[in-house]
């Protein structure tokens, strides 16, 4: 009969209307700035540099190998290698980036830099509220803005970070064992410089 369908439809919409006031499950809207969903682990946005410990300068994992700079498809990374060296997480003296810039207006979040990095130094962030009133300087991020502690990385990507930490730990143990073996072999040889190797020490190595 004509009109039957309209009446059942009207009841259905009325049910939805009143249901949205009493049933939280119906009303799926998250009112974003006030309410927000927990960030999912697989989310990724722009790269960050990871550092160990407290000091972003001393603990930065990046050794300025410039692989990411070369691989970056849109060429948004700029690295200037340091002249001196500093010890990395196992104590081995390494170069470090004097300048590390990422232009996020160019970055396409492809994660290739993360894939190619042999030092677990560059990772993807999940931060997305990045609006700025300056589209040139505001979107060109420098090393101090990019450096994030390892704890932060563990917070945003726990599974991935645990794997990375495990790998780095094993590497460190291996390196220590090697160092101990080397120390045992030439016990009377002078010990390698421990902290902040100078350019002379680096040249000697």
């Amino acid at each position: 009969m004509l009109g039957e369908g309209i009446v059942t439809g009207m009841f259905e919409t009325a049910r939805n209307f009143f249901g949205s006031f009493v049933n939280k499950e119906r009303l799926t809207t998250i009112q974003y700035p006030e309410e927000r969903l927990p960030q999912i682990e697989a989310a990724r946005n722009f790269p960050i540099l990871i550092y160990d410990g407290e000091d972003p300068e001393a603990g930065l994992r990046c050794v300025a190998c410039q692989i990411c700079e070369k691989e970056c498809p849109p060429k948004c990374i700029l690295i200037e290698k340091s002249r001196d060296k500093k010890p990395d997480f196992v104590g081995k003296p390494q170069f470090y980036p004097a300048v590390f810039d990422i232009d996020v207006s160019v970055c396409m979040s492809c994660q290739i830099c993360v894939e190619v990095c042999p030092f677990e130094a560059i990772k993807m962030d999940t931060e997305f509220e990045l609006s700025t009133d300056n589209r040139f300087e505001g979107l060109l991020w420098h090393k101090d803005q990019l450096a994030k502690p390892n704890q932060y990385y563990q917070g945003i990507h726990p599974t991935e970070a645990a794997k990375v930490d495990q790998g780095l730990g094993e590497e460190k143990i291996k390196a220590e064992a090697k160092a101990r073996a080397a120390a045992g072999a030439k016990a009377n040889a002078p010990a390698p410089p421990a902290v902040r190797a100078g350019s002379e020490a680096a040249a000697k190595l």
Partner: peptide, 10 residues
């Protein structure tokens, strides 16, 4: 607002 509620929106 009414249409929103019918469609389970605010």
């Amino acid at each position: 607002k009414g249409l929103g509620r019918i469609q389970n929106r605010y």
